[in-house]
Amino acid sequence: MNNTLLECRDITVKFGRGSDAFDAVSGASVKVGENEAIGIVGESGSGKTTLARVLVGLQTPNQGDVLLENKSLDSVQNSAGISQNDRWKVQMVFQDPYSSLNPMLTAKTAVAEAIQVWTRCSKNTAMNEAIELLGDVGIPPDQASQLPGNLSGGQRQRVSVARALAPKPKILIADEPTSSIDQSAQAQLLNLLRRLQEERKLAIIFISHDLNLIRYLTSRVYVMQKGDIVEQGPTEKVFLKPSHPYTQTLIQSIPGSKSDTTKIVDNSGV
């Protein structure tokens, strides 16, 4: 791994109160280096999205620190004023492009808005930059003037990527970026993210339950189960020689892994 860019240490997030209280994330530590692609895998409820929200600063952890370039994100957070902190360096692409884009804003306005928030430039400059940025993610100018409702799922997700790129971040966190789009659009998006990683020297954190996707895209992986990181390491190694039983179950469950599916134990509770 190159120099550590973003790191979280012993993160615990509690949800609920009293007897309903539980740890969505308990004592998780994750690091990502410059220009590195890492993955966080796990099933729904394993805490991977909560951890992602902590990393991007949307969720305050009950315990633990988030360090961006060795500076605490927490201390910055307390000094008011968005532009003064370094939050812009970490951006998120959300799971569902149907709900993460404002249906009343055209693609270019949505991206221009993000550019203006971060750079405080004129509306015109922002609009021109937005069109350029959208072009870079494969949205031509005529589609850039469309409302999200007139765009396909794949196109919408590319608009979300353009919006996340607006402040020229160093880290992109992609939470299940392909789960709601078609396979051909999925390949386009994954190729795009890989190209952006290379061209913009981005670090990318992929959150996914799709193990094939994680294997294809990342060099290191963290496996989460019930709020714990149960296994971590170089992606290929974890896939070829999973050491934790949960990781083994996950890998055996991949369709086409040719395992005897009938042997899988029923461990889903009521």
Binding site: S152, Q183, A185, A187, N191, R194, R215, Y216, G256
Partner: peptide, 26 residues
């Protein structure tokens, strides 16, 4: 063929996925 070559489970890490250009027609 395109559906098959754009699958992540068949791609080698590091390879570019062969994606289908454009979007599905509605």
């Amino acid at each position: 063929r395109a559906l098959n070559t754009s699958r992540t489970d068949k791609a080698r890490p590091g390879d570019l996925l062969e994606s289908i250009p454009g979007d599905a027609v509605s």
